[in-house]
């Protein structure tokens, strides 16, 4: 364990993250990059971007609460120190996505109201299931919920968003690519650290599987709500052209510019759930199909 955790040291984190891929960035993107003018001028498009970004802030606030809360529950010093880096990663994500809301015209005094107005209730429930485990200082369940389920979902959602915006909004694409690099590290820690703990505590499996089933349900419900509000394919293609970017944006075999929102939702859900199955299998947890809690 000690050798594996040495790859998650704060020294390694400093060299690879702040002094690595975040070097010369400002709020996660290159200095001077701005949101496209059309996105700021079109009320509907701006509102849609705010709604999407609110979900990112809500998810990252949950991740910040979970990773900081898990430090005191960690059974060894090296895990505590790793979680310290994850805590700061999550705080940075809260900061950069909050900054994006300001860039989109949200006033600082209105921030909390905007978050309350647009936060998806299913995403809030998803967070509550995880934070209940953290509050009980249940390290094993907390890390599975945070580093496999929440981070696994975030990783895939960010990749999809990145594929969708990289041709039309370099600023947001750059912001996302830094967070994707962070999430990759978090998911890796979850898989590597928890496998051995699950072996030591097999009695915890049923409870963890229940948590994953409930979180997966609320995650799919969040996706369904989000894509129900998404513009249709013709509208997206027109917007991409107006933004001056490439209309094609392929992700996992789906053309994000022309696919029906239902097909996009299906592709996202399939990708996340497939990842869950693979990652949970690696740590000895049996994937549970989502059921309404």
């Amino acid at each position: 364990m000690a050798d594996f955790l040495s790859a998650y040291s704060i020294q390694y984190w400093l060299e690879s993250c702040p002094q690595g891929y975040l070097e010369d960035t400002e709020y996660g993107h290159a200095p001077g990059e701005t949101e496209p003018a059309l996105l700021l001028d079109d009320p509907q498009l701006r509102q849609q971007s705010i709604r999407t970004t609110v979900q990112l802030v809500v998810g990252e606030r949950c991740a910040l609460a979970a990773s900081s809360g898990l430090i005191n529950a960690a059974p060894d010093e090296a895990s505590k120190r790793y979680l310290a880096t994850q805590t700061l990663d999550e705080a940075r994500h809260v900061e950069i996505f909050t900054q994006r809301l300001y860039d989109l015209g949200v006033k600082k005094t209105e921030l909390e109201d905007v978050l309350r107005e647009h936060a998806n209730p299913n995403l809030v429930k998803f967070a509550e299931v995880l934070l209940e485990k953290v509050d009980k200082k249940d390290f094993v369940a907390g890390v599975v919920g945070q580093n496999i389920v929440l981070e696994g979902m975030a990783f895939t959602v960010f990749e999809m968003l990145h594929a969708g915006v990289k041709g039309v909004n370099p600023k947001f694409a750059h912001t996302l690519s830094g967070t994707i690099a962070d999430e990759r590290r978090h998911v890796g820690f979850g898989e590597n650290r928890i496998g051995s703990l699950i072996k030591e505590h097999p009695e915890k499996k049923p409870e963890i599987e229940r948590m994953q089933r409930d979180m997966s349900y609320y995650m799919l419900a969040t996706f369904a709500d989000a894509f129900r509000r998404a513009p249709d394919a013709a509208e997206r293609k027109r917007l991409a052209q107006d933004l001056g970017g490439r209309p094609e944006a392929s992700w996992h075999g789906v053309d994000l510019a022309t696919a029906d929102p239902k097909d996009m939702e299906q592709a996202l859900a399939d990708t996340v759930l497939k990842e869950f199955k693979t990652r949970l299998g690696r740590i000895g947890i049996e994937y549970q199909s989502p059921v309404r809690p």
């Binding site: 704060i10 020294q11 400093l14 430090i71 120190r81 805590t87």
Partner: peptide, 11 residues
Amino acid sequence: ATQVVDEGRHL
């Protein structure tokens, strides 16, 4: 959160 990582680094 920045203080958490500072304290983790000190340790």
